[in-house]
């Protein structure tokens, strides 16, 4: 959801293939006749339309709630949201903490869980793909827990760890661990044959092949896994905080809902969206920095 466009590459290795086909087609393919002189003008026209559409959207929203077509209890005016945002930055009402604290708590939980999920999941996925016995021992087990949505783990983790930070971190750990394993596993499996043959003809040992060939060529796929993992982390974090917690963005919107402060709910929801987008962008930046040769 958060990462949108490339999100789907997760579902299986073959979809990546389809995408490759599509890309190569359009590279070879003839660009259709385009009167190139017009494109710039066209671009500005579309940008103007976008701006107009956004402005119109906000104006309609504003009018709808100002004139009472939709009651302000259900849809606060946009300017009110901005006020509430500023107010929440410094004020602890109605949920006991400022917005900054909530954001910080949520980010902390998400990133810690994500970090452990990746650092344990990726090596596990790689070794499952590389060592056959390992694969056969763990794959069926893994297939068993894989389809359970991370949210399902929330009550168990709360039972174990209480409603503090630990329960959230462990849910997020699971949410990011699973895609990390899946993607590094299929990344290595996928890029094995041809590259390894090449490396082997140059006399590389098995471990050399793993570290110099298999892992680098699986890197884009692993990063896709990380992206899915981060997205999943953020979603399950919100769920976990909604269900039981004392701090964090999810808790903030849940409490605001209970006391009927719809403006705070709105602000919270938007902040969740914005920080989700920021996290994904950060990861994309890392990917661009570290994956040379880029995604296909």
């Amino acid at each position: 959801m958060i990462c949108g466009k490339r999100y789907w590459e997760y579902s299986s290795s073959t979809t990546t293939y389809i995408r490759m086909m599509a890309v190569s087609d359009s590279v070879i393919g003839s660009r259709l006749p385009s009167s190139q002189g017009r494109t710039l003008k066209e671009k500005t026209r579309y940008i103007l339309i976008s701006v107009a559409s956004l402005v119109l959207f906000i104006v309609i929203w504003d009018l709808a709630s100002r004139t009472g077509i939709i009651s302000a209890k259900k849809l606060p005016v946009p300017s009110k949201l901005f006020e509430t945002f500023l107010y929440k930055l410094t004020n602890k009402n109605p949920d006991g903490n400022t917005l900054g604290i909530h954001i910080w708590t949520s980010l902390q939980e998400a990133l810690i869980g994500f970090f452990f999920g990746i650092t344990i999941g990726v090596p596990l996925g790689i070794s499952m793909a590389w060592f056959r016995k390992f694969d056969k021992l763990f794959s069926p087990l893994f297939d068993l827990i894989k389809p359970i949505p991370p949210v399902g783990w929330v009550p168990i983790m709360i039972t174990f760890f209480g409603i503090g930070i630990m329960s959230k971190v462990s849910v997020i750990f699971i949410a990011s661990f699973i895609p990390a394993v899946i993607n590094s596993y299929s990344g290595i499996k996928q890029t094995r044959d041809v590259h390894t043959w090449v490396a082997q003809t140059f006399g590389a040992s098995r471990s050399q092949v793993l570290f110099t060939v298999a892992i680098p060529s699986a890197a884009p796929m692993i990063f896709t896994g990380a992206r899915v993992a981060l997205n999943g982390s953020w979603v399950s974090l919100v769920a976990a905080e909604l269900i039981a917690s004392t701090k964090g963005l999810g808790y903030m919107i849940q409490t605001a809902r209970l006391v009927g402060r719809i403006d705070v709910v709105f602000v919270g929801v938007l902040v969740i969206g914005v920080f989700g987008a920021i996290l994904m962008e950060g990861l994309s930046y890392l990917e661009r920095r570290f994956v040379k040769g880029g995604r296909r």
Partner: peptide, 19 residues
């Protein structure tokens, strides 16, 4: 549509629950 969709897109479905 896209600019309006962009506001909604990064919000997880679950975050809509209170609203």
């Amino acid at each position: 549509i896209y600019p309006i969709f962009c506001i909604v897109r990064p919000i997880p479905g679950i975050a809509w629950i209170p609203l």
